[in-house]
Structures are given as structure tokens and as C-alpha cells.
Write a protein that binds this DNA or RNA. Sequence first.
RNA 1: UCCCCGAUAGCUCAAUGGUAGAGCAACCGGCUGUUAACCGGUUUGUUGUAGGUUCGAGUCCUACUCGGGGAGCCA
Length: 512
Amino acid sequence: MSFDHVRRFTPAPPRASSRVAPVAPPLAIAIRGHTYRDNGPKSGSEGTLMELITVASARQAEAIGKQVRLQGWVRTRRDSKGGFSFIELNDGSCQGNLQIVAEAALPNYETEVKKLGAGCSVTVEGEVRQSPAKGQATEVAAKSVTVHGWADAESYPLQKKGHSYEFLRTIAHLRPRTNTFGAIARLRNQVSRSIHDFFQEQGFLYVHTPIITASDCEGAGHLFKVSTLNPAQLPLQNGQVDFTKDFFHRPTFLTVSGQLEAEIFACGLGKVYTFGPTFRAENSNTSRHLAEFWMIEPEMAYFDLQDNMTLAESFLKRIIRDALDKCGEDMKFFQERVDKEILTRLQGVLNSQFLRLPYTEAVEILEKSGEKFEFPVRWGIDLQSEHERYLTEKKFGCPVILFDYPRTLKPFYMRVNDDGKTVRAMDVLVPGVGEIIGGSQREERLDILEQRMKEQGLDPAGYWWYLDLRRYGTVPHSGFGLGLERTLLFLSGMGNIRDVVPFPRVPGSAEF
RNA sequence: UCCCCGAUAGCUCAAUGGUAGAGCAACCGGCUGUUAACCGGUUUGUUGUAGGUUCGAGUCCUACUCGGGGAGCCA
């Protein structure tokens, strides 16, 4: 689906993607990647031609007959008295392991092969052949097994059996070697790719907004301070810290949103998106919050709130479809080991049309629901998690986009409706996770925007550049924010956001 | 930050206020084209930390630390 039809006044500029980079000369060794191939056959230990391939490609029946070299980590070893051992090899290229058959004739069979255990790193050379046993199409008959690094079985924390996520969090440096975190890493990679693919195909421009900022998009005191001042010797002026002595000559923070800067580029280049790290210093101790997370924020000139919703829905569906199509094995793993309903739920979302429901109607539905809520529902107060869950999981059973919230509940930059009481905000609620997207049509009228800033105790002078966008050539525009980690929770069925980010940062914890 | 729950072997968990155990892992042996292999045996503890109650505390009380679930803030 294209959004180019939506009231664009200028054609999209040529995109960077039209400049195709020249093909790089082959590297000496391709360690990872989907080519699964280095710069050609090389001489193996027995003088045969060895091709470096991944476990993923060696597991395919097409690989049968090839002389190959594989590099990865041992998951487990089983011995046969018949004079050989089975080694389960994984290199992160896919969910499944490759079975290596190592004969006793190998020169290092007794000294090394029979001592291999979980965690050891090896290079294996041999021939891919059809596996006579169930469980895999192929296996590799090893001609050599080279051990790079041992993993002492007494002290290596990862065992063959399952571990709790809580335990794995304490060894975040080793958990990428587990099935679950391998699957998460590959899914996260795919989602990141889908995000760029979707927006690039729609003619969006990828904009890098600053990590360090002096503005506070949400208007609250939950930012991380950035300073080079010595905390033990702060320069003071009338009892206050004198920030003119600081690096930027003013207080600065880690960004909580790239939205305001994205608006700058949207109001000049049309459709843009940001995709980068975001920092919130809130003392949130939940399974859905991180102090450091990745956020995607598209911002579109000439989009109204309905266009915004259409984009959000089509964007989410693209990510789901790609995950199902391109991470099939990992998604199957989530279905079997993490959440028995994840595939049907995602398929249901793909097939559904997101329900668009004004806040006012949602409140009426909740009031008439007869449901016993812990917190009462009343027009003018924010909906609680239990209310949102009721709507998306129980009442409708599909994603719900709530919009037109009371102005008192939402930030200054959201466009005020004609009724004067509500603003053009939207929240996308999905089953299982709750709010996954928050967005709005932006206030493009200078006088109303200034009034809203004062209403919320903000000094318009500090946002002079933001106001200039309304002062000169203002346009209606919209955008939203999608949390990458919440998307991963939604896609995988995982229960804790700390398990879908490589290195979680939460209050009291920044290990690794 | 608030409410609730928890912390015992490398991991997952038992143990009416009265001698701290099991399964898995590890190690040894057996068996096997095996695949969460199987069978037999062996090893493993300052019961989160600091106090308190008690003749006696893994168990009861207090504080703290860490973890989990829920709430708020939100993505």
C-alpha cells in the first residue's frame, strides 16, 4: 500500500537507495551472514576443497554431498560405543543444531572429541550427507574437529536442560547461546530490517535525530542528565548549579523522543522516520519498561490522524507478516516453547481490521460493560491497563485504536479538536501487550500551540524553533512512536521486556 | 515509587520450631545410529545479608539486598 496519494504537494526526492554501492571485493573469511559463503573453496585438512557454510545451510538437503567447513559452539555430545560420537553444533544461523558424526578414527578422538561438552567452540570439516535417523535431513561426517576453546563442564553455567529467564538474565553474556535468545536475536534483526524496508518502500527518509538534547518532549522530570561537571565540585550561582560552566553551557539530557526533531525534517522533506535509542529515567519496575529502549518514530507532513492510523496499521501488519514469513523456524519455536497461542494471535491480527474507537465511546462501552474493574471509568480520566486489556482482548479481540482523548490527559503538541475538549491523539492497543503505539496529529496552529504550552507550564521561548515551524509555512502533520521491544514481546509471546533486549537497562541494574 | 509473593546444592524445587532432601547437571561405569538418550553409582550446602525471639530457627519477628507478579508513568 502506498501513501503517496495522500495530499502530497511535492514529489518525493530521489532516495539514497537509488545509489547502489559497488560490489565489494570478496573478504578473506565471511564469518556470518546470509551468503553463507566465503571467497571460494579452500584447502581442507586433507587436501579436499572445503566451503565455509553455516549450520542453517548445512541443514538443507541441497547441501548433501558437499565438502564443508563449519564453525560454532557445541550444544551437547552423545557417544556411541560403536566407535563414534554425535556432536550437536550451533552457530547462531538458525534455531536447529547440526549433527556432527565424529568417528573414533579421528586423531584427536580420545584426547579431545570425547571431552567436548556444552559451550566448547570448534571448527569441523567434513562431508554433508543424508542423515539415516529422524530429527534432521542432514548430518556432517567429520574429517577433522578442531577445538578452539574449552568450556569447563563443572563451571559453565549453561546446561543441556532449560533454564529460567531470571537465571539467564544473570548471565546475559552467555544467554545468546541459548535457543530462546538466539531466536530473539534473529527476530529482532528481522524486525529492524522490516522497519527500514517498509518505510523506504513508502518513500520515507531515515533521519538521525540527536541523542543529546536540551529539550524535553514530554514536559516532565524523568530524563537522564548529561554533564561533564564534577558532581563533587559543582559550580554554584546563587545556590543553583551554574550550567553555563557545563559542556554545552546549558542543562542537557539523553533524548526521550526524536519527535520534535523529526517534525523539523517532516516539515521540509515530507515523510521521515527515526529509529534509535531512547532513554527514560522513570523508576519503572515492570515487565514492559526499560530505561534504554529503541523507538521508531515516523513523522509525516500533510497526514491527518486517520492517515496516521492507516499507516500504523499497515506498518504493524508488515512487521508481523515478515516475521512469520522470514523467521518461520524461530516463530515455531516461540509457539511451542513460549506461547501456545502466538501464531493464531498474530494471524488473527493480520486478518483483522484494526478497530478505530473514540475515547468517549470507549468510556461509554466500559461503563456499560458490567465488568468489575478495580479502578472506576469516567470521562476525563486516563484509561487503566485493565480497561485497555478489556477492550482489545475481551470486548473486541483485535487491535483497537483509541483516539480523540481529553486534552488534559495529553501533551501540548497534540492538535486540539473543534470541540475544544479533546485532542487528536491515538493509542494502538494490541492483545497481550496493551499499548504498543502512541501518536497524534500535531498542533499546527501557532496561537493554539503557544496557549497549550502555557497551559502545561512550558515556556514557549525555549521552543522557539519548534514554534517557527508553525510561524513559517505550517502544515498539518502527524506521527507516532512504536517501541521496538514491545513489538518483540507482541511478536514472540515473551513475557518480560528484559528478555527481548540484548542488555537490559532498568532501575538498579546496568550490568554487562 | 506503591501493593503482594519469593530467596535452601551449579540449575529447578521439597523440608508440622527438633539430624537439610529430590530431580536434573557434573563425575565414574554400563548400554546404545544417538538426538531433552537410557540404566547403575558417586560428589555437591556459612539455607540472600545483618540483627532479634527461643533450650533449639531453613521455618517465627525486624531491617536491608536481590528477584518475580501487579499498579502508576509510558513505548
